[in-house]
Design a protein around this nucleic acid. Structure first.
Lengths: 396, 396
DNA sequence: CACTACTTTTTAAATTATTTTTTAAGTATA
DNA sequence: TATACTTAAAAAATAATTTAAAAAGTAGTG
């Protein structure tokens, strides 16, 4: 009895998930998406309508024959998702509903991940406080999804790099206990890729690479329609393949890594050096303003066309393009998306990256991979964190 | 009726395939492997025993409870597979039975793929003649599997690079008509990888890279337990990522490609140049013997420890190792296998490749990828071609 | 060495899911 | 407006899976 119950519930959850991704679906659509028969799906959807989770929404446009009924998630009986993005310096939290609308305005805190001791306690009180202030009742919250840097085993819920728990402890369980909600964690770049796959440029594609341009450079890989992590979770160490002629030593102990020349922190350093050397730039003023991090100022200046910022960013973009060429040769992806905080500088990246790809790629290969800038760079890690919850939680 | 028949037959074929890969299995094993229930699998296996395809083979060793019956493919009621490997210069054919035994000794013909006109006719008559001479009856042959270089869409049966058929024609269909048997084609490197995955070093692994060291350098990729081809079939263009400082122009139009410094044809040229410059080597004699290609002589000399051949091969291996480092960073595979014709030179490759990986890889990553030399390098493309047939043919 | 407790396989019965068929609803065309 | 052609939904028939029970071994114990 319990086994059939869980199987029934698994399909029920699956139906809800497909409605979450696709907004409006017919029974035939759902049958195809879940690979289950129509009578079975019909039964499940009828139950969901009865329970108030799903509502009928009129007839689908004609496709030649009898018009089908469409179904939506019910706005009135809502569940909510807490989505958190943690990076080296800034932690952001937001609450979404199941229609991807922001339910509670995002909140931000400056939190240096390197301070292991203080940051964990601060993090927990920040999130707890935010949820409490939101006024949403406990039963309505499906869970908390957290994207963070580091080598992460999402299934086990372990982060091998940051927020380490004593004696091989499980971060996911630790946080679930502390926050009193189901917690799901995953790597930031993987979540950005997930967001692009489900709601962004990569919809309905199978092989998509998402470059996470942040304080460092990350790579989220979608292969065969799923997040790819490699054999031991280290896949996508894109920023440490030897590329540049640069002699600077990387934190990984090697020279010529992409990271050394393209991370936002490095670009800021370079801008400061240029300014110190006498180059004039709006940045000189902006850097004095402490309300934002220098990296944030840098991106704003670049977006606004400041020549120094644009020039530094272009050099970095060319190197990233060289790295992408290697990626294209090996994986022949359908799409490469430039995402992450840095992608808010948008189009500035495109020209030098294309330039590099033209120079380093076999044309036949370059022609088969589209490059684009994420349309929702700032939001996509949070969105990915929300998807993480929807993918893993239970709807009862 | 027909639909249930095909579904029944699909599972029947699946059972035969699993017995092909695993030799001996219990009903429980088969149920798990096919993801079908025990009663269903039991029924199918009983039918197969009745039809003579499968035979009982005593009890499995004890695992604590009642001992299970084991089943094997029936040696008496055999089907055979024609496996063909085509490379730029040499074409080989062999006939296997379903237990991976060679049924008819392999035959070899020198066939230059570049001569589009003559090679196709020669190829067809060579294969037809071989099958005729084998004396095996038509009904017993399941099909012909062919591995060849080029960008190949295995599903459609099109080779975009070699053996081109007029007006976008379908090579698979063309050859099926000409040879009067079902023909299946795939890329040589992918088939080598398939052989390693199913019968070689990569058994039960999910992420395996197989380097095909032949006249050129190819890469067969196994990702998530399946051959990976990328979005448009170009994945694994490993040999044209920019790596070496070399200034030689590659056929692809760029400089610094792996291919320029590591293909067997190039290594032979280099050996000849060294000999011309006065270096003494056994190769000088061997190259005079026309019964084998210079590349074949070169490999034999290297295997036998000729200093010149070993030194040239080591230089090439170091570069391949540098390329593999990139692969490890991006894909974090469980295993990298050195395969293909060149791998017959075996252990000579290992030291310089390890050296390169130590130099160019983050240790944490290098530690998680095993490197090994294929144990059956010369046979694996043929074996892969046989697997291709088993994967795609119908057993009735 | 027989007896008991525990495993695992095999068979059989009951439940659940999928296909197939039928009926209903809508569209396009003459 | 009538007819042929689609597609969707509901009902009946067929097939597959789960669950339970029986059978066949294994291993420990007095």
């Amino acid at each position: 009895m319990t086994a059939t119950l869980t199987k029934y519930h698994r399909l029920r959850n699956d139906v809800i998930r497909h409605l979450y991704y696709n907004k409006m679906l017919t029974l035939t659509d759902l049958s195809k998406l879940t690979h289950k028969s129509l009578p079975l799906v019909t039964g499940i959807v009828n139950d969901l309508v009865q329970d108030g989770y799903v509502v009928e929404h009129g007839l689908a446009p004609s496709t030649g024959g009898r018009r089908a009924l469409t179904f939506l998630l019910n706005k009135e009986k809502q569940k909510f998702i807490v989505a958190v993005s943690v990076d080296q310096l800034i932690t952001t939290v937001v609450i979404y509903d199941m229609l991807n609308n922001i339910q509670v305005e995002p909140a931000k805190i400056y939190l240096n991940l390197a301070d292991e001791q203080t940051s964990m306690a601060l993090f927990i009180s920040f999130i707890t406080g935010y949820i409490a202030k939101s006024g949403i009742s406990e039963e309505q919250i499906l869970g908390i999804g957290i994207g963070m840097p580091g080598v992460i085993n999402a299934k086990l819920g372990v982060n091998h790099t940051f927020f380490k728990i004593k004696n091989e402890g499980n971060l996911k369980n630790y946080l679930s206990d502390a926050l009193k909600f189901p917690v799901y964690i995953d790597n930031d770049s993987s979540l950005i890729a997930l967001a692009e796959l489900k709601f962004g440029e990569g919809r309905n594609m199978k092989d998509v690479m998402v470059v996470n341009i942040g304080w460092g450079i990350g790579l989220g890989m979608i292969i065969n329609g799923d997040i790819f992590r490699g054999h031991s979770g280290y896949a996508g160490e894109f920023s440490h393949i030897p590329l540049s002629q640069s002699n600077k030593l990387c934190s990984c102990g090697k020279r010529g890594c992409l990271e050394v020349d393209t991370s936002l922190l490095v670009l800021v350093e370079r801008a400061k050096a240029e300014i110190a050397a006498g180059i004039s730039s709006r940045l000189e003023q902006l850097f004095l303003d402490d309300s934002k991090l220098p990296g944030e100022h840098f991106l704003i200046a670049a977006r606004d066309g400041d020549p120094l910022a644009v020039s530094i960013l272009s050099d970095a973009a060319f190197l990233i393009g060289k790295g992408l060429s290697t990626l294209i040769h090996i994986l022949n992806p359908e799409l490469i998306v430039l995402g992450g905080r840095g992608a808010t500088a948008g189009k500035i990246f495109m020209a030098p990256i294309q330039h590099a790809i033209n120079e380093f790629c076999i044309p036949r290969l370059a022609d088969h991979t589209k490059i684009s800038v994420s349309a929702s760079a700032e939001r996509s890690e949070l969105l990915g964190a929300a998807i993480l919850v929807v993918e893993n939680c239970q709807f009862n």
